[in-house]
């Protein structure tokens, strides 16, 4: 099984993004590139928020290009607004489990408790986002992704607002869970250290062109000219 982007062309106004790549199952991939290079557009195409003008998105060989975001085998964490602040964490997770009605079904409570425990938030189900710290909010958002139980997870800089130590903690937690659950994770980040810490492979996006995933260590040892300029190496 793999995530495949075959001859994708996506347009946003004058901007064009071209991608042709395969991400193997259970890989942890960092997506790096300068601001405006097309990283978020790439994630939007995979998540289903943007329909490409051309090309196909496949998961496990199945064409998912035209599936709406909510029915894809993909869940996404945005930079912000990953949970509804007027609902408790438990209600948020319940809604993610039952998007048709939001009503809890038998067995849901146990699943929610298990996921909360998994992200280190046991006993926090009755709280609102405003009653939690930034790190706890990030864990709650991660719980929402986990409870959706989809094989592909997209992280669109969701921990950018956290301090360095907390961010590293969250990346380690995501990596650990991804490893255990066999999740395929794509992480967009501006910080090369995030990529080095988290990802096995790296996709470079430069002026709308997306490269195939390359081994993280090898890539940063010998970065291509575009990435070198982005990293500040001239």
């Amino acid at each position: 099984m793999a995530l495949q982007l075959d001859s994708i062309l996506a347009c946003a106004g004058d901007f064009e993004l071209a991608a042709d790549l395969t991400v193997p199952e259970a890989d942890r991939v960092a997506v790096v590139g300068a601001s405006g290079s097309g990283k978020s557009t790439l994630l939007d195409v995979i998540a289903g928020f943007r329909l490409p003008e051309r090309g196909t998105v496949r998961w496990a060989g199945r064409d998912i290009t035209r599936l709406p975001p909510g029915t894809r085998p993909v869940s996404i964490l945005f930079q912000d607004t990953n949970l509804f602040p007027h609902l408790t964490i438990r209600q948020n997770l319940s809604l993610a489990l039952n998007p048709a009605t939001g009503r809890r079904r038998p067995g849901d409570a146990e699943r929610i408790d298990a996921v909360l425990e998994r992200v280190g938030l046991a006993g926090f189900g009755g709280r609102y986002l405003a009653e939690m710290s930034g790190g706890q909010q990030s864990r709650a958002a991660l719980a929402r992704v986990l409870i959706q139980a989809r094989p592909v997870v997209l992280l669109d800089e969701p921990f950018a607002a956290l301090g360095p130590a907390l961010k590293d903690q969250m990346l380690d937690l995501v990596a650990e869970i991804a490893e255990a659950e066999g999740l395929t994770v794509l992480l967009v980040s501006h910080d090369p250290d995030d990529a080095k810490r988290f990802a096995r492979t790296v996709i470079v996006v430069e002026a709308g062109q997306v490269t195939a995933p390359r081994d993280t260590a090898a890539l940063f040892d010998n970065p291509p000219p575009g990435l070198r300029a982005y990293l500040g190496g001239g």
């Binding site: 289903g48 928020f49 709406p68 945005f78 809604l95 939001g102």
Partner: peptide, 25 residues
């Protein structure tokens, strides 16, 4: 604008969106 993408990501039905998000907010 704020929650449309989250709604999409969760695949909320029109009813669930109305009852759990739109009316309370």
């Amino acid at each position: 604008a704020e929650y449309g993408r989250l709604r999409g990501a969760l695949g909320l039905s029109g009813w669930a969106w109305l009852w759990w998000v739109f009316l309370p907010r």
